[in-house]
Amino acid sequence: MHAALAVSLLAGSIAGALAPSPAAASEAADRAALEALDIRYQAAVKANDAATMAAILHEDFVLVSGRGQISDKAALLEEARAGRTVYERQDASERSVRVWGDTGVVTAKLWLKGRTDGEPFDYKLWYSDTYARTPRGWRYVLGQASLRLPDPP
């Protein structure tokens, strides 16, 4: 009887040690939620969907371009509403999501292709999007984009 109980307790201890901790499960859920939110945000930009962008962007949002240009939430929403840019591509690849408590960072390579005021563009860059957990859920608080990547040879 004691041997069976000891084996049962040992098996339970091993299973418990191998099971993900609640914190790890929560972090995995946060990473999945942030990846989905960032994909949703990129799709909203491509579609010039200012309403979806507004729901995701934090009130104090700031975007810093590779050239140091700073844009806030109002500027991005106005740009989307104006519809001056028509995207053929707004595709992220090599996406990485990291979470530290109530802060998450999504990093990806972005391929942008389309027209602004009729002028074509086609280039790639890297971006890092920082999200903060708020009482209303995750919100996009800071974006930073690299300079345009060189064209492949």
Score class of each variant (00 low, 15 high):
T107H: 03
L63N: 05
K109C: 08
S71P: 01
N48H: 11
N48M: 12
G83L: 11
A54D: 15
V7A: 13
T85I: 15
I56L: 15
H2C: 08
V105L: 12
Y123W: 14
G101I: 07
A6V: 15
A17H: 12
G137D: 08
N48P: 12
E88R: 12
L125T: 14
L63W: 06
Y41I: 06
D102L: 08
G137L: 11
K109I: 08
T134R: 04
G104I: 13
P22S: 07
G143R: 03
R98A: 10
S93V: 10
A75I: 14
R139L: 09
Y140G: 03
I14R: 04
D91W: 03
A43R: 15
W138G: 04
A55S: 05
A80E: 03
V86G: 08
D151P: 07
S21V: 14
A24E: 13
R133W: 04
G12H: 09
E59K: 12
Q90P: 01
R84E: 13
G16T: 15
P20F: 09
S146Y: 08
T52W: 05
K109T: 14
K124G: 09
L34Q: 05
L63Q: 03
Q90H: 14
I14F: 12
R133M: 11
F61A: 01
V7W: 06
K124W: 09
V99I: 12
P135N: 04
R148T: 13
E35S: 14
K46V: 10
L63C: 05
P152D: 10
R139V: 07
P135H: 06
L57Q: 07
V99R: 00
I56M: 11
L10N: 08
A50M: 05
A3S: 11
W138V: 08
I14S: 06
A6M: 09
S96K: 12
K124T: 15
W100E: 04
A92R: 00
